[in-house]
Design a binder for these strands. Sequence first.
DNA 1: CTGGTAAATGAAAATCCTTTTCAGTTAGAT
DNA 2: ATCTAACTGAAAAGGATTTTCATTTACCAG
Lengths: 143, 143
Amino acid sequence: MRPTARKIASVLTQKGYKLTAQRRAVIDVVVSSSEHLAPAALYERVRRTHPAIGLVTVYRTLEMLSELGLICRVHRGGKSRSYTLALLGHHHHLVCSRCGTVADFTGCDLEELQQRLSQDTGFKIEGHLLQFVGDCRNCQGVT
Amino acid sequence: MRPTARKIASVLTQKGYKLTAQRRAVIDVVVSSSEHLAPAALYERVRRTHPAIGLVTVYRTLEMLSELGLICRVHRGGKSRSYTLALLGHHHHLVCSRCGTVADFTGCDLEELQQRLSQDTGFKIEGHLLQFVGDCRNCQGVT
DNA sequence: CTGGTAAATGAAAATCCTTTTCAGTTAGAT
DNA sequence: ATCTAACTGAAAAGGATTTTCATTTACCAG
């Protein structure tokens, strides 16, 4: 289930955040992108419709949306961070190593493993990060 | 199975890399550390025995060891990268969010999930990243 | 045991990405 | 319409990482 821009906006106001033109613009881009986006790339796209926006605002908005759980961070090799729209509920990513397309999936079924690890190591486990990397359908033919 | 410094050194020479004093020093620190280490932290430790080494060399050596699969990168929140000795074979990490201690584990059993995802999405999956985050035994009492 | 040579090193500078600061602006409650 | 805390953008600061380049060094050949 992909949330709509409207839905995200309403979460913001409910939480007491102001709904500025800049935030709307960032949200619109996030909602309409199927790939994950680094702050800089997102900034470029937002600028098409909102040329006066500052990169800093993009950073701040992404940070805020991320804390609210509305978008989530994608972990790539390590260079720059990226974000993608959060699906409702627990999910993970499948990232294309060539074009960066992100597919989400649910049903990781790691509870059992987590419990085993907790017992074995004494860790109090708070979360996990699971991500598959590969080539998406479109990129498989490409050299 | 933890590889020894000797073992790692021999891989380097086999691959045609020169075995310099600096590289030996970096390898020694990596092998003798149970935690994962960020380049800067590793640099500090290496300097104890090899004060003239440059941070750049540490970066370059880590990059090289990582490409050879002798160490592997640990993904934290996102700030700085870290590396830890690669165990032989397939394994994953359990990272303490407070002190950074890394425990390894094997047996992630994701083949089935991977196959399902491949079919559903058309991705040609090449690898995955699985990591649990939590508080290790020592850090659980701490405020 | 010498060279000779390509590879490796260290210091400084350059790049990136991200965060902080601060003065000016604005959304939304009253 | 007014007020105020929240928000914004520009610039500066901060950090991590990479590049550049002159110098040094490991190690192969002789």
